[in-house]
Design a protein around this nucleic acid. Sequence first.
DNA 1: TTCAACTATCTTGTCAAGCAAGGAAGTGTC
DNA 2: GACACTTCCTTGCTTGACAAGATAGTTGAA
Lengths: 108, 108
Amino acid sequence: MRKLPSQLLKGSLEGALLQILASQESYPYEIHQALVTAGFGEIADGTIYPLLLKLERSGQIQGERRDSPNGGPPRKYYHLLPSGQAALADFKADWAQLEAAMNQLGGK
Amino acid sequence: MRKLPSQLLKGSLEGALLQILASQESYPYEIHQALVTAGFGEIADGTIYPLLLKLERSGQIQGERRDSPNGGPPRKYYHLLPSGQAALADFKADWAQLEAAMNQLGGK
DNA sequence: TTCAACTATCTTGTCAAGCAAGGAAGTGTC
DNA sequence: GACACTTCCTTGCTTGACAAGATAGTTGAA
């Protein structure tokens, strides 16, 4: 699995986070693993936290701290708010357009 | 045609430029139009010039000034160099991975 | 004849976001 | 006692798209 250049990830990661939280609530450590598993390459974990804080501050997601079931440090679970749902829809439209534009060039 | 958020374009535009120049030599003004036509949204023309200069300085493309056939200002035609061809191949692999990762999340 | 629209190139400063590097702390294993 | 894993978080750096603006030639309309 190749490590993607950071510039290419810009903007995409925010949408990816919303996408993950749309299907289930999750916490940063798990989200990070989900991104790597999905194929985004090795994302720095220092990337995830500021992004989540930004989304929380802007009212798109909400966090809640809960004890870990396996005795580890407590986790901060995030879930999507309506505003985040709308932002996700926007992102999906943006992404679809970018994807289409890229394929347009490649197919020529 | 929606204007894509600038952050989402980061990295993608560089690949798009290489892609365009891979199929035919071109000059900035035409490249800009090609991007808009392909569906990348309204790209600022101030974005194209620094990008091309960077690619030229790094030896991926080469420019050559020629008179415009329609009597307008002279154009600077760029064509792809071998190093640019290789960079394009890299970009394509990166893009394919990102696309796959995104679809992976969406399909869940 | 002047004014807008189009073609064409280029520079400077700003801003957003991913990353590297680091810190903190608990649990379990060898 | 050391290492690996889980879990959270911050600071400063760098990159690249953009806004704004400068320059200049051609053409067609008012």
